[in-house]
Simulated assay, not measured.
Amino acid sequence: MGTSQHQKAQSRAAIIVAASRLFRERGVEAVSVAQVMDAAGMTHGGFPRHFANKQELVNEALASAADEQQAGNATSSDGFETFADTYLTRQHRDHPESGCVFAALGGEISRAPAETRRVLSERIQRQIAAFGDDPDMRADALGRWSSLIGAMILARLVEPEELSDQIIAAARQFVGLPEQVKA
């Protein structure tokens, strides 16, 4: 790959990273292309060299965030416990920009164009497949994973913080972790 192609690829990757963070932090609709480009350290005018439109960027940024999360998920019982232990924390609750794309944007994406829903549906199906072929193990893992996502959405939604912590603690207990809410 030539230098200019390499630079273009690096710029595109920086745009995707910035968009992924901003979309999870503020929501897709609340973030403009200009804000993404600024966060990536580029000018708005350079956007068309990388993406046809904002929707293409949304699809790639959300797919990237989901792929990153799945790469960090282990599928064994111990792996799930480790994943859940870091998922159900104040840190994750307080920093959606670096957390689970499904908990950060699930409600918004459910109303997104079909292509965006398809992109994330594929990632969900990959994660389900990673849970294994055993129907009972798969159903258990899917139920526990869904509980994590739902708990994080509720924990971010409510006030006061004490209630948020109680939601996280209850979810931790439900999936078999110590109730103590970690920072």
Rank of each mutant, 00 (worst) to 15 (best):
R93C: 05
S77V: 15
R49K: 13
R93V: 09
P113H: 06
L105K: 09
E81T: 09
A66S: 04
F47G: 00
S64F: 11
S64C: 09
L88H: 11
S110R: 14
G72T: 14
T89D: 08
T75P: 08
G106Y: 10
T82S: 11
T116A: 08
R126I: 00
A71I: 05
N73D: 12
A84S: 13
T75K: 11
A103W: 04
A71K: 15
H50Q: 09
E108T: 08
P113R: 03
T89C: 07
A61L: 09
A65F: 00
A65P: 00
C100F: 06
E108A: 13
G107R: 06
H50I: 13
V119P: 02
R93M: 11
E108Q: 14
Q69D: 01
K54D: 06
G99V: 04
F47K: 02
G79Y: 11
T75V: 14
D85W: 00
R49V: 11
Q69N: 06
A129I: 05
F131M: 07
L88K: 10
S98N: 05
R126N: 00
A112I: 11
E108G: 06
T86D: 10
E68T: 09
A129H: 06
A112N: 09
H95R: 14
F80P: 01
A129R: 06
D67T: 13
D136N: 08
G106L: 12
T75L: 12
G132I: 02
N53R: 03
A130N: 14
G46L: 13
A71P: 03
K54N: 08
R93Y: 04
R123V: 00
G72S: 14
R90H: 05
A74G: 15
T82D: 15
R111N: 14
D94Y: 09
R117M: 08
N73M: 15
F80Y: 04
N73P: 04
A114H: 09
D85S: 09
L88Y: 09
S76E: 15
E60W: 11
H92C: 12
Q55L: 05
H95S: 15
F80R: 06
D78S: 12
E56H: 09
Q55K: 05
E97L: 00
H50P: 07
E81K: 04
C100H: 01
T86L: 12
T116S: 13
E68F: 11
E56G: 07
F131R: 01
Q55R: 12
Q70V: 01
P48G: 07
A114G: 08
A112V: 08
E122F: 04
N59Q: 14
R93A: 09
R90Y: 07
D136G: 02
D78I: 13
Q91A: 15
A130C: 13
N53M: 02
F83H: 15
A104Y: 00
E56Y: 02
Q70P: 03
K54I: 03
E68S: 06
N53A: 10
A129P: 08
K54M: 05
V119K: 00
Q127H: 04
R49C: 06
P48S: 04
D133A: 15
Q125V: 01
S121N: 02
F80E: 03
V58F: 09
A84V: 13
T89R: 11
E81D: 11
F102P: 00
S98K: 14
A65Q: 00
Q91Y: 07
P113E: 12
E81V: 07
G99C: 05
S76W: 07
